[in-house]
Design a protein around this nucleic acid. Structure first.
Lengths: 159, 159
DNA sequence: TATTGTTATACTCTATAACTATA
DNA sequence: TATAGTTATAGAGTATAACAATA
């Protein structure tokens, strides 16, 4: 329960983390930094980042997705999605198809190259996360995901 | 278990989140965004951000902390800590004392104003997190913190 | 040689307002 | 009027290299 600051404590005996230990946001940030750093490394060989990876996965799994729908799914602003889609399109991993009924919207679709890269990247990320979460029991990992999801859903319903 | 994408699903029936749902980093990022956004709002009245808040708490709780020690505790680079300490010092919430034996290092200490602001901010953050995590049972919340901490400890031991 | 704090820099992510072309 | 995508921009966090002063 108090294991998290062991390292620092071993070097410098009397640290006081009492206040901070109760601050969930602090633990979440540290954990996310670990995941993010490791993920960046994993995705480097595919020339993907977390955001381009997430976008690609969603586009592969959901043909004809619009940019607005994708932005909602990724929980980012439409404006910030544009450069991400630009990048995937420039690399010919996806295409911006036109929607027959609506000339404002795009229907995003993965190319064959996109689907292939996605498959490889997903396999790498799955392996990476299995390694990263190997210290957690299956039960703990499931509980973690559930708690994180709950948090997001609750925030949405509180809007 | 599948509640997280309810909203989108209600609007657009057949989204496929199968791949992404297994991607823990995705859930962590979404959850952290929620916490971060809410926390930013909470700390706004104190003119603090997550990083300045965390630094202030640690300095208050640990007199004579050096910048290197603080950076380790906060899990950020020393270089990035400088502007944070600058800001707290400029606002006269902390001071950079000199260490008698070592003219390179500073001993960071909170001022009375710093300790007072810290106390108020901590109370606000505690209240904010109680509200934010009200959807989670005490048990789930404890499990979340434990899993997040474990993750960070494991990452450190893998270095 | 190593360490403390520092500067500079580059990249990424986030948030907002305002614009265009359509509906 | 509202919506889809876009541009521009500002702020914040992160990562790295190189430096001066000191150990």
């Amino acid at each position: 329960m108090k294991a998290k600051h062991e390292k620092a404590s071993a070097e410098q005996p009397d640290y006081n983390y009492e206040t901070l230990d109760r601050f969930v946001g602090y633990h979440m940030k540290r954990a996310f930094n670990v995941v993010q750093a490791d993920l960046t490394e994993t995705l480097k060989s595919f020339e993907l980042r977390m955001l381009t990876y997430t976008a690609l996965v969603l586009i592969v799994d959901n043909p004809d997705l619009s940019q607005t729908q994708l932005a909602v799914a990724m929980d980012i602003e439409r404006a910030n999605l544009v450069v991400i889609v630009d990048e995937l399109e420039r690399r010919e991993l996806i295409v911006r198809d036109h929607v027959p009924g609506d000339r404002r919207a795009y229907a995003l679709n993965a190319t064959l190259a996109g689907r292939r890269l996605c498959k490889k990247a997903v396999a790498a990320v799955v392996a990476h996360e299995e390694r990263l979460f190997s210290g957690l029991s299956v039960k703990k990992k499931a509980a973690l995901i559930e708690a994180l999801s709950d948090l997001h859903v609750n925030a949405e319903s509180n809007e």
